[in-house]
């Protein structure tokens, strides 16, 4: 079985820089660090500022087989104005939908700052022929997607075909044109932090603008230690190349507390530059209401009931 971190550099076309072996990751120590950052006490003004930031970083997501025009339109309204009547609440970063729904989202978000992100490349398995995946990507971009969330071929990665994975990412990047590329590693299927790290490096060196943990279809999805490992990969890539890559944990982030924990990870691993929607996103479908409830609680001092927040 091929080592995923020490096994030399695959000869890759279109790679931005020669890819060194990835450093190993110690599972226990990485989890310990993520856990210690979870103990940061975020109260009062820090909590309010953090939650507002979280909303601005949110990719409001719906990726169900039952998604419809109505569902997507409603979601877009929510992204534009998360808390109607409360003008202090900022818009979300983006709405993330399937390619066929991009035109609906584009229309609903016209004139707003909210971007349209689309999963592509035969989401969520990524197992169609490359030409199909590239076509999928081009269609989404042509339909107006600002951002493409692609999935890597985990089967290829796990069987050691790293060069193939890298080449495919580079090809999708090319197909994206001006659209930003987020590369989903589906960390829940990678089996180890060493693999998470290796896949992160492959993605960044092959042209990813963002690296993203999960499709949301596989458990575990985003976790703090996986995110930490990816942030550390981004940090090393930045020092090696000067390029700032964005990070997007997605899946399983449901509470305001979790969202703040992710922000803590970013703040203490990469610093201020990454505390910005250009470089950090939270992929979530149900997080927003909890964040809104917590903000309301901070404002009013009273614990909130969910019937007071719109369910979209």
């Amino acid at each position: 079985m091929q080592s995923t971190h020490g096994g030399g550099s695959p000869a890759l076309s279109g790679m931005l820089a020669p890819l060194e072996p990835s450093p190993p990751v110690d599972r226990i120590a990485a989890e310990e660090r993520a856990q210690s950052l979870a103990k940061r006490s975020i109260k009062k003004s820090a909590k309010v500022a953090g939650l507002r930031l979280a909303i601005q970083m949110m990719d409001l997501t719906t990726l169900e087989g039952s998604d419809s025009r109505g569902k997507v339109s409603a979601l877009c309204m929510k992204a534009r104005s998360p808390s109607p009547g409360d003008h202090g609440i900022p818009s979300c970063a983006a709405v993330c939908v399937y390619p066929n729904l991009v035109p609906i989202a584009k229309e609903a978000l016209a004139g707003s700052s909210v971007k349209v992100a689309s999963v592509a490349t035969a989401f969520p398995s990524g197992l169609s022929a490359l030409s199909v995946r590239l076509d999928d990507t081009r269609r989404a971009v042509d339909a107006g997607a600002d951002e493409i969330d692609m999935v890597i071929d985990r089967g290829a990665f796990l069987s050691g075909e790293h060069a193939r994975v890298a080449d495919e990412i580079a090809a999708v990047k090319e197909a994206c044109g001006d659209a930003h590329l987020k590369v989903i590693l589906e960390t829940g299927e990678l089996g180890s932090y060493d693999n998470v790290r290796r896949a992160s490096d492959l993605a960044m060196y092959s042209g990813a603008d963002f690296i993203k943990t999960s499709t949301g279809k596989i458990q575990p999805a985003a976790t703090p230690p996986v995110t930490l490992v990816m942030l550390e990969a981004i940090r090393d890539f930045y020092f090696a190349t000067g390029r700032r890559i964005g990070m997007k944990p997605a899946g399983g982030i449901r509470t305001a507390k979790q969202a703040l924990h992710y922000l803590v990870l970013v703040k203490e691993t990469l610093g201020d530059a990454w505390l910005h929607p250009d470089l950090f996103r939270l992929g979530a479908s149900t997080l927003l209401n909890d964040v809104l409830m917590q903000l309301k609680k901070e404002e009013s001092g009273a614990y909130q009931g969910d019937e007071y927040f719109t369910k979209d």
Partner: peptide, 19 residues
């Protein structure tokens, strides 16, 4: 030189309140 200019900024973009 460019390498040397790469640095992380752990500033005040988001500060923790006293706890």
């Amino acid at each position: 030189r460019r390498r040397a200019e790469r640095r992380l900024d752990f500033g005040h973009a988001w500060d923790y309140a006293p706890a």
